[in-house]
């Protein structure tokens, strides 16, 4: 992969300091209840105006192609553009700081009271609800895929391999992703 060159600047002309990055991404993490997609757009585009909406969309698109967490990748790319690798480390630390502290607090409270029936019921309900959220996400992502039988087939094969046959992720992606790429290339040539 190419790493040559310096990060391409965004259209914003006033500088974004390392402290700006840290404090901004602390807010993204802290207010990211139920996922940080909404809070990151709010802080990065609307409140701090680090990126325009178009720039944000293009960084998100790039973040989705790179493996790993989309919004962690976004944080890395945005912080790097303004303050280089040190900025990326600072932005990521800011993003993770409050969520990790809150997680430690929540877990400590849970461990203290895990024997109470109400806490058990609440945890079971939260886990079930979170599974529902994942089905909701899958449903949303399924809409554009439904239009193509081949794409739908690829989705179902991946689902069956991981979901039912419990094949390892590494091997599955290594086989399925190249096939998906070949199908795209082949359907373009026709």
């Amino acid at each position: 992969m190419q790493t040559a060159g310096v990060p391409t600047p965004f259209s914003r002309t006033t500088p974004v300091t390392k402290w700006d990055l840290f404090s901004g991404f602390v807010m993204v993490g802290m207010f990211g209840v139920g996922g940080i997609a909404a809070s990151s757009y709010y802080v990065v585009v609307e409140k701090r105006k680090w990126l325009t909406a178009e720039e944000y969309a293009s960084v998100i698109a790039l973040s989705q192609v790179v493996p790993g967490a989309n919004l962690i990748n976004m944080t890395t790319i945005v912080s790097d553009r303004y303050q280089g690798i040190a900025g990326a480390v600072i932005g990521l630390s800011g993003l993770m700081l409050m969520p990790v502290l809150i997680l430690i607090g929540l877990t400590a409270i849970y461990d203290q009271y895990a024997h109470l029936p109400d806490v058990r019921a609440a945890t079971a309900a939260a886990a079930a609800g979170a599974v529902g959220l994942m089905f909701g996400t899958a449903y949303k992502l399924l809409q554009p895929v439904m239009h193509s039988p081949i794409a739908l087939g690829m989705a179902l094969v991946t689902f069956a391999l991981i979901g039912f046959l419990q094949t390892p992720l590494f091997g599955t992606v290594a086989v399925v992703a190249p096939i998906a790429v070949l199908i795209t290339i082949w359907s373009k040539r026709r």
């Binding site: 992969m1 060159g5 790319i77």
Partner: peptide, 8 residues
């Protein structure tokens, strides 16, 4: 990887 992709 994101950093490298962002720069490229």
């Amino acid at each position: 990887m994101a950093l490298a992709a962002g720069r490229a």
